[in-house]
């Protein structure tokens, strides 16, 4: 299953981006990559199993991705309004 390997690679790239970058927009993009990794898996398994459930799942994952991106960017805008002169890059949120 080559597709699974692609999916895993995609997942790891997304995770790496999320865990190391400071720019919030890019972090949100990393989440899109992770969800795409899930979708590759789902579609590949869908063909493997010969049913469309995986593809349906993938549609829902896309819907979720849209919703998360919309809300995430909405919060980003609200944050930007509150600290107008500051660069978003400086919001060093992911400190743990």
């Amino acid at each position: 299953m080559h597709y699974v390997a692609v999916s895993l690679a995609m997942l790891l790239i997304g995770t790496a981006g999320l865990l190391t970058r400071r720019n919030i927009v890019i972090i949100l993009m990393s989440i899109e990559l992770i969800l795409n990794a899930v979708n590759i898996n789902l579609v590949a398994f869908s063909r493997h199993h010969g049913n469309a459930a995986g593809q349906v799942f993938a549609i829902f994952v896309i819907a979720v991705a849209v919703a998360e991106a919309a809300v995430g960017l909405g919060i980003l805008l609200a944050l930007f309004r509150n600290r107008e002169t500051v660069q978003v890059d400086e919001v060093d949120l992911l400190k743990w």
């Binding site: 899930v38 995430g72 992911l94």
Partner: peptide, 12 residues
């Protein structure tokens, strides 16, 4: 924002 990012990550 932090909650969303980590929450979305965990959902992924």
């Amino acid at each position: 924002l932090k909650y969303l990012i980590l929450g979305a990550f965990s959902s992924g």
